[in-house]
């Protein structure tokens, strides 16, 4: 028999299907970048003429700079705070055995399962009830409520595979608790911490539903995009969209290079 077996056919189908879905995931982003170079005020395809004037406008615009700065400040603060909270939270989640852990594991993950828009509105009520005026500071708080559990989840995966005997061994060999933390625990868990930080930064950078209700008078890029999409479209929408998109891509690229450098060191050790 010469025809390919059933197994081979399914394998081929799975590969093709996966490829198609990945293309499906990226098509809209390509569309946004394409539109950002279109000369027309309103998008039309095939694009009759290309231009970079929207980018020039964006770079010279003060309000765009302000949007970027607000988004960046929120994301940076969220990353730092959530990584610290989640590092400890993940140790409690996956490393230590303690009474109440199973309940903690479930409760701590609840915000992930929660509709973000409703969470944002609930925060709005909360801030007004305790008399806090909403601004980008309150948005940091709101982002943290949703992002910290996600980072805990990501870091936990790494923490689960961490052998507690490593800490005990270092302690037994004379290390202080601080030396155990800085020389054993943190370096071994660093891949999990780095991926947690990447997720924290980018999820905050791109978040819309929480920002919408908690930034008050300040505005982030996703909020601005939504406002302009729903009413008052300007050609700056695809331009700013592409800009945030490339910022995220750059961030990932840098993270990837750092990761390559770390694993190159590991490989150098391995090859000896």
């Amino acid at each position: 028999m010469n025809r390919p077996s059933w197994k081979k056919l399914t394998e081929r189908f799975i590969i093709l299907w996966t490829g198609a879905v990945i293309v499906f995931l990226y098509v809209p982003m390509v569309a946004v970048v394409l539109a950002s170079f279109s000369k027309q005020r309103y998008f039309k395809f095939p694009v009759p003429a290309f231009t970079d004037k929207w980018y020039q406008k964006a770079f010279s615009s003060l309000s765009v700079r302000e949007l970027l700065w607000t988004s960046l400040s929120i994301a940076a603060l969220v990353t730092i705070i959530s990584v610290v909270l989640a590092f400890l939270g993940a140790l409690a989640f996956a490393r230590y055995d303690w009474k109440g852990r199973k309940l903690y594991q479930r409760l701590i993950l609840l915000p992930i399962f929660f509709p973000q828009a409703v969470l944002g509105l609930a925060m709005l009520l909360w801030f007004s009830a305790i008399g806090v005026t909403t601004s980008w500071h309150t948005a940091v708080f709101a982002h943290l409520v949703w992002i910290t559990p996600i980072v805990i989840l990501i870091m936990s995966i790494q923490v689960y595979s961490f052998d507690p005997a490593l800490e005990e061994a270092a302690y037994d060999l004379g290390a202080t608790r601080w030396q155990v933390l800085t020389q054993i625990t943190l370096p071994i868990l660093s891949p999990g911490i780095i991926s947690g930080a990447i997720f924290a930064f980018l999820l905050s950078w791109g978040n819309f539903p929480l920002s919408l209700f908690t930034t008050g008078a300040d505005q982030t890029i996703p909020e601005w995009l939504y406002a302009k999409m729903v009413s008052g479209y300007t050609p700056m929408v695809p331009t700013l969209g592409s800009l945030t998109l490339s910022a995220a891509a750059m961030f990932l690229l840098v993270a990837y290079i750092i990761w390559l450098a770390i694993s190159a060191r590991r490989r150098r050790l391995d090859s000896l």
Binding site: A165, L166, E168, A169
Partner: peptide
């Protein structure tokens, strides 16, 4: 102590 898992530092 020499641990059951040996606890060699992987990094």
């Amino acid at each position: 102590m020499v641990f059951q898992s040996l606890a060699l530092f992987p990094h």
